[in-house]
Amino acid sequence: MEISRNWRLQKQRYGLVGEVCEHCGSKIFPPRDVCPACAEEAKTLYQFSGKGEIYSYTTVYDAPDGYEEQAPYTVAIVKLEEGPLVTAQLTDVDNGKVEIGQQVEMVTRKLREDGERGVLVYGYKFRPSWSDENLRVG
């Protein structure tokens, strides 16, 4: 049970809330209070749009404990339109049927469950953008 740990991260995981550095203007996700670009303090919250494109992707067949029921699933690195890269599962796609550069948007989904009586962990995943011509119909 990791209740406090998941509760602590809910703003970031549910809302894609990061930070912006007042010194160099870098947008930061996940938030870390110290700007990775200029090493100055960066505590101003910043709401990301949730839009981005696929930087890279893979299909996981050998899943860790807590993710077995989802396997095989697609994990991607998404380049957010504000700049940062974020690791996230893709949803509403056929495994492997995506491309580098494809436009995606954030949605909230179940990330994992710790057994029948355990905590359900929710957070962001990404799916092909509705405006995207790559959208599969049906």
Binding site: T58, D62, Y73, Q89, L111
Partner: peptide
Amino acid sequence: SDWEAAQGATPAALAALIMRRYMH
């Protein structure tokens, strides 16, 4: 753990993400 493993990423998955982009 909070930002990679929580999304179901594994060491092999991270290597795969690198390899796919490298080939691209």
